[in-house]
Amino acid sequence: MTEAETDTENVPQSKYTKDKKVGEGTYAVVYLGVQKHTKRKIAIKEIKTGLFKDGLDMSALREVKYLQELRHPNVIELVDVFGTSNNLNLVLEFLPCDLEVLIKSKDIMFLAADIKSWLLMTFRGLHHCHRMSILHRDLKPNNLLLAPDGQLKIADFGLARGLGNLNEDLSSNVVTRWYRAPELLFGAKHYTAAIDIWSVGIIFAELMLRIPYLPGKDDVDQLDVTFKALGTPTEQIWPNVSNLPLYNSLRVYPPPSRQELRNRFIAATDKALDLMISMTQLDPSRRCNTSQALLHEYFTELPSPTDPKNLPKNKPNEPTVESNGNTTKRRKVE
């Protein structure tokens, strides 16, 4: 049995150093390291084995499955995969920060152009996923990682899935609660890429508000919070909504008026509001897709999106590769 094993046993892991442990996720321990021959910084995600009595962890397998196919500047790069005595190791590009950390760093000011830049990169990455028929199903600020050069990368494909099959049931128990589209809240068994669009819409709002937009306390509360903010769906605006499994008599909230939304997002331009409204349509079939979003006038009107390398970064006192005086100064000023 050893042929295959010895092949990879000695070679791949010696190509990387595993320097220090930086984090521990649900099914993996993450180490920082260096790819020896390029001196490139990498992260090694070592999948815990033996935790899952049914063999190799499913989320890890999905992550490998999709990241092997998705090569895009705005999707985290899977540099390599190797195994050591039944241990699965994913070598990922090193991404020192994520959007959640930035949103929470209240001393860092976001310009409208910064938000536009992050949103644009998110859509570029997501567009690539969707045209490959892959749904992410867990978009949230915490899964939008930031490279030292400012590029945003969609990460964590542990819940992703392909739209390979026709008419098969999908699990509605996906997406972290606050970013979960209404069709999922209603337990829809058939849904589309529109669930990811919704999540990005909520992230867009969060980037402007700097606090979570729809923070439901539990699944029931999530419905209430969502519809209080965006109106309760009716058969009129969303045909057949009442046939969804978990749909039942809800408190009826009116949809927000344009003025109400303007007040909610004071800094947003009309185009920005248009795009957000289009992403957060209750009826998934009315939500825009990634192509439409990318062509939206919000992205062409001024201000132009910030050049990624000039975007705000975390940890101003720890110099990163691209960091220059400019960015630090701006942060202090604003």
Binding site: K65, E69, V81
Partner: peptide
Amino acid sequence: DILDLEFIVLLSLKFTLLVYHPFRPLY
């Protein structure tokens, strides 16, 4: 018998796990 082989199969597959089938194009 199966779990011991899972990783070996994965290695032989060179960790490429997404397979495109003709059913969707047929539709």
